[in-house]
Design a protein around this nucleic acid. Structure first.
Length: 223
DNA sequence: GCCCAGGGGGCTC
DNA sequence: GAGCCCCATGGG
């Protein structure tokens, strides 16, 4: 492992933290709510997801049993605001069914095993891909798994770092090979990438002058 | 009015 | 296994 790369990745983290501040993603939320959020936020702004979670809470539907009990149409109506509601209703029902069958609705049991094994199992659930599985492991399960999203990829690319191969696992390896497996670090780091991704900085190529990472962008330290 | 967001599945070749 | 298309609302 390269010390220089490790220092650069920590440097990026601290620059983002100083610039955007702690993001406080999902602090102290119920794990099941976090999982529902992870599915509902697929290709969707978080503000839309919040409305759907509020709707689910209001009718007491934020539980695996309630999600199984509701019809796809009823569930779709409750999560209408977050878009793709028909698909996402099926995805929520698939996860709730799987959780009931395999773990008797106990997230504690689900998270008890090895993270790598659980990741494989989650990927077999309809509607759970790599990013969603990793979000569940990190934000709901407190496992040190680094989440890669479209923003993270774009930021890495802008910084002059493109892993060989363009796959999720290649980007993820960059972080997990060069950072300590610290849940709070991984949690905050991903959230900070999203904060930067949403800012105007990422819209310019390379990152705009005012960006806290502009200097690194010019030096291309991540190569 | 037009564009895209904190993806994933299914299909084709 | 890479390349498309589909899903769909809400905010800029």
């Amino acid at each position: 492992m390269s010390d220089k790369r490790r220092r650069t990745l920590l440097d990026i983290y601290h620059r983002l933290l100083a610039s955007f501040g702690p993001q406080h993603w999902w602090p102290g939320e119920e794990p099941f709510e976090v999982i529902v959020g992870a599915i509902l936020t697929q290709s969707t702004a978080w503000s839309n997801v919040e409305k759907s979670i509020t709707s689910l809470k209001k009718v007491g539907a934020l539980s695996p049993a309630a999600i199984r009990r509701l019809s796809r149409e009823e569930l779709g109506g409750l999560i209408h605001s977050c878009g793709y509601y028909n698909m996402k209703a099926l995805k929520l029902k698939a996860f709730a069914g799987w959780l009931g069958d395999k773990y008797g609705d106990s997230l504690e049991k689900m998270f008890a095993g090895e993270a790598a094994d659980l990741r494989e199992a989650l990927l077999g659930v309809h509607g759970v891909g790599e990013e969603t599985a990793d979000s569940i492991l990190l934000y709901a399960g407190g496992k040190p798994v680094f989440v890669i999203d479209a923003y993270t990829r774009r930021i890495c690319d802008r910084l002059g770092f493109k892993p060989k191969g363009n796959k999720y696992s290649h980007y993820q390896k960059l972080f997990t090979d060069n950072l300590p497996p610290d849940v709070r670090l991984f949690n905050e780091y991903h959230a900070l990438f999203v904060a930067l991704g949403k800012s105007h900085c990422l819209k310019s190529q390379p990152l705009c002058q005012g960006c806290c990472l502009a200097e690194l962008c010019q030096k291309k330290e991540m190569r």
